[in-house]
């Protein structure tokens, strides 16, 4: 289930009509249950691959699940109550955005829900007094500013090609989106890396590596079960982002899977061969290259 379109029931009318209620229900159950399994396995796979890149044996494939269960069983220790609320909100909005994508809902709305999830994490980081957490949150805000325009441009390009904001409109296309908006996809790669917090854009936090100048950045003050919530949300997030990628090749299962796999491998590769950038450099680079590519692509769509 690495992609959104893959979960489309066969009875679905590909003309772009709504999913039936029963199918929708099962799709939601599938999304809630299977997505974290896939996300956890992918996280484990990634850590394994990275270890092999570095000439190490690496952790077992299911390591991410061990970590999650262990964290869940640790002593709950929150700095304040509102911090916990934000952790739950982060997870909740992340699940909602994934489900909305699975159900083929309005892309603009999905992106706003997705941003909501990020905002919840930022507020959680700002709600405590730790300077690491605060500076991590500030950086996360900068990242939000950096990638949001690209996502909006992606939706605009999507609308221009399909004539609809609904994600399920992509399922009825004659040819994959990637033929018409390839540059947007390239721009999306930067969003992908920023959101999954990999080098060179792992500025705000990192889950599995010691993060240097900010200790753990935005999640410094979370511990035990609350950290588990954020970890779980990150799995949903990974599946959600891969689903967005799969949207670019929504006409065939295999194409979508291949595209998602390519993005995943690129992510791992780039993470391994780059050091961390400063945030000023990130803003400059992503806006110049990422936003530039997306704008060129959208302009071409409107002109051609």
């Amino acid at each position: 289930m690495g992609c959104a379109c893959g979960d489309r029931p066969t009875s679905l009318d590909v003309g772009g009509s709504a999913v039936s209620v029963t199918a929708g229900f099962w799709l939601m159950v599938l999304g809630i249950v299977v997505a974290p399994l896939v996300g956890g396995l992918l996280t484990g796979l990634e850590r394994k691959v990275i270890a092999r890149f570095q000439g190490r044996q690496g952790p077992p494939l299911v390591q991410a699940f061990y970590d999650l269960i262990k964290l869940w069983q640790k002593q709950p220790r929150a700095v304040n109550r509102i911090q916990v609320v934000y952790a739950y909100a982060h997870l909740f909005f992340m699940i909602v955005s994934l489900l909305a994508l699975l159900l083929g809902q309005d892309l603009l709305m999905i992106l706003f829900i997705f941003s909501f999830a990020s905002v919840a994490l930022i507020l959680g980081g700002l709600s405590v007094d730790s300077p690491y957490s605060r500076i991590g949150s500030q950086r996360e805000i900068v990242q939000l500013l950096v990638y949001e325009p690209i996502l909006i441009l992606m939706v605009i390009a999507f609308y221009k090609v399909t004539g609809s904001f609904m994600a399920r409109a992509a399922w009825g296309l004659g040819q994959p989106l990637i033929y018409q908006i390839p540059l947007v996809l390239v721009a999306f790669l930067s969003v992908f890396i920023i959101k999954l917090r990999k080098s060179p854009f792992d500025l705000a936090t990192q889950l599995h590596e010691p993060h240097q100048e900010l200790v753990k950045g935005i999640i410094t003050e979370y511990s035990g079960p609350h950290l588990a919530l954020i970890e779980l949300a990150s799995w949903y997030e990974m599946v959600f982002l891969l689903g967005l990628v799969a949207l670019f090749w929504s006409t065939s299962w295999i194409g979508a899977l291949i595209l998602a796999a390519v993005f995943f491998s690129l992510l791992t590769l780039i993470d391994n061969v780059t050091p961390r950038a400063t945030y000023a450099w990130m803003v400059k680079f992503v806006w110049k290259v990422g936003l530039g590519l997306a704008v060129v692509n959208v302009t071409c769509l409107y002109l051609g």
Binding site: Q57, P59, R77, H208, E209, P210, S223
Partner: peptide, 12 residues
């Protein structure tokens, strides 16, 4: 790391 150990650098 093959035993699942990660150097966290954060006491929490």
């Amino acid at each position: 790391e093959r035993f699942g150990m990660v150097n966290t650098g954060n006491p929490k």
